[in-house]
Design a binder for these strands. Sequence first.
DNA 1: CCTAACCTACCGACTGGTTAGTCGGTAAGG
DNA 2: CCTTACCGACTAACCAGTCGGTAGGTTAGG
Lengths: 187, 187
Amino acid sequence: MRNGERSRERLLDAATAEFAAYGIAGARVDRISAAAGVNKAQMYGWFSSKEGLFDAVFSQHLHRIVDAVPFTPHDLPAYAVALYDSYLTDPELVRLAGWSRLERVPVGDLLDAHHADPKHAAIKRAQAEGRIVRDIRPDEVYALVIALAGTWSPVSATFTASRQDDQADHRRRRRALRAVVRRALVP
Amino acid sequence: MRNGERSRERLLDAATAEFAAYGIAGARVDRISAAAGVNKAQMYGWFSSKEGLFDAVFSQHLHRIVDAVPFTPHDLPAYAVALYDSYLTDPELVRLAGWSRLERVPVGDLLDAHHADPKHAAIKRAQAEGRIVRDIRPDEVYALVIALAGTWSPVSATFTASRQDDQADHRRRRRALRAVVRRALVP
DNA sequence: CCTAACCTACCGACTGGTTAGTCGGTAAGG
DNA sequence: CCTTACCGACTAACCAGTCGGTAGGTTAGG
């Protein structure tokens, strides 16, 4: 009974990297346990299956996926830009969400309602204050901002940005993103 | 030598469905050959591996992914709405692109330049004519439109729409999409 | 017109490596 | 003495890819 807590953490870290890189079907439990330095049987004692391990990883990172960046409904352009930056520093989270969408949740909400509801409510208030356009429903405002911030994300259908890109590229994308969100959603 | 052409077609159709549903790592070649009614050894005679089969499937559908909808740079809002509709009728294409991004092409362009270049050039002309705002580069205009059209797509990080959704929902999303693209990109 | 050679579609059965998950245990701490 | 961390070795199923064929159609030579 030397150090169960630390082992569990190393295991979840290794599993995060593995699932982010290969998805659920592509992940290998032997690779995870080897990378974590945790015995496989031990792993199965804590989490009962590969799927169970993915669930643990995903729910552990849920708040980081959702709140990687403080939500600022009164300044959506800045929020979108901050998301762009967070996708650059933490592409794993976006990839994890992508796998979950493709391998687990093909339609409907990706996350539980109680993660999104507070944001929708905040958007509604900002609309009442005249900070956000009123002709689009709060949940859709949110969806559109997330989609825009993900234009160059690790699940982009066009181009995925990386930290190695030229700083000028990042600046140009941030500027475009800020302008688009402002013109589209700020009255 | 009864009908090689038809068998090949059935095989590619079955492979498309399988890869769209499960991705490369999750796809099972036995399932594909069974669904197509084509012997597995035959399959390996035509395509040399599971990866080779995915490549064939993906390149076969490339033009449909890129040109599922006629590109109308002079009316980007309508283009975005048409893409929304095409994602509803053909979610497989978007999922295929998603798998390719996650399992194959983690950074940079998802598609070859020669697929995107004509569109960028058309956007540039539309900008010169004053039909599209000039403060955003053509390739980024395109990326932003694709991202917006994919707000409720099968790779959405928030909500994935489906044909079963209420017609009112579809109308509301189309209207929001049209408004956002117009305000953001049309002068 | 026949037939031998050849090509391509088609196929059932197999294999070797991989992989999720298990077993039966030791030892450390409380 | 009980619980929990830890572990090497194992297994049964799975799965991509192969083997060694048969048969139908086409062509060319006689």
